[in-house]
Design a protein around this nucleic acid. Structure first.
Lengths: 145, 145
DNA sequence: TTTTAGATTTGTAATGATTACAATTTTGTT
DNA sequence: AACAAAATTGTAATCATTACAAATCTAAAA
């Protein structure tokens, strides 16, 4: 498990590059996503920040995630599983693996080969591509056997 | 737009191959998905069948879709967009394109090239793979320009 | 520093998809 | 026909998300 750590200036730069005016709440939420690559739900983000930021509102978490997502700084993963959307900060493209037993989401590196996809036909403008694998992770396989 | 039509016997065969005991409701819902390749939501299915099947219950639509999905006969597409899950009958693997302007979902043919993906590492058991493109479809592009 | 307009945040109430569950109906078997 | 098991139905609950108005904060002008 890699550990991430960012300075305030780095957070400010990323917001600035996305054209997002900084605020205390926006910095705290973005920092959490950058330093905790666990694809958290809104509830997980809110509960994790609650102790250190007791006045933070759930609505602000929703609003901020939508804002950062529209700015292209983070991504929303609509992965199903019943617990709502998950949110992801990462610089490189990657796919996701959802373990349908424990619910954990793992990053999966991939690369599009030149002939891998017949992309949508001419006339379709593609803004994003999401690749989601579902199955059983090694840990759950071990526990079950 | 290709037109699909199925006999009662064909529907029965597909249910049987999936190990699903037939019923009037199950046949009606499966037939709708097979003949209308529009990736409908639960609500669209329910409203479309309502006139011809006034006693059909929304709960039965939910239950039946889950049952057919578990049997591997249909697929659930968790595509976001706010209108809930969409449901899909089709024999061949394909990706999906969601137009974020009009909300329509289009099939996109693709093939996995041998080196296209670094699949999840050994130990991960993959049960399904979903590929979702998002962007603007030709129709919305034309209307906007 | 004070004022003030605009942006941000907050909390509560509404929305809407999905599920839980108990009652009713249907199906298959004796 | 009678019974047991399965399927269906309708209503009530759940839960993520959004709407919205009030309160707070920010930054610039006076």
């Amino acid at each position: 498990m890699q550990a991430y750590s960012y300075t305030t200036q780095e957070i400010l730069n990323i917001l600035s590059e996305g054209g997002v005016k900084p605020s205390a709440q926006r910095m705290v939420i973005l920092r959490f996503l950058m330093e905790n690559r666990i694809h958290p739900t809104v509830d997980e983000i809110f509960k994790a920040l609650q102790p250190s930021h007791p006045t933070l509102s759930r609505t602000t978490v929703y609003n901020t995630l939508r804002l950062l997502s529209a700015a292209g700084i983070i991504r929303c993963i609509e992965i199903g599983g019943g617990d709502g959307a998950r949110w992801d900060y990462s610089q490189h493209d990657h796919a996701h693996f959802l373990c349908t037993s424990c619910g954990h989401v793992t990053d999966v590196d991939y690369e599009f080969g030149p002939t891998a996809f017949t992309l949508p036909p001419a006339g379709y403008t593609v803004h994003s591509a999401d690749v989601i694998f579902k199955g059983i992770c090694p840990h759950c396989t071990a526990v079950a056997s």
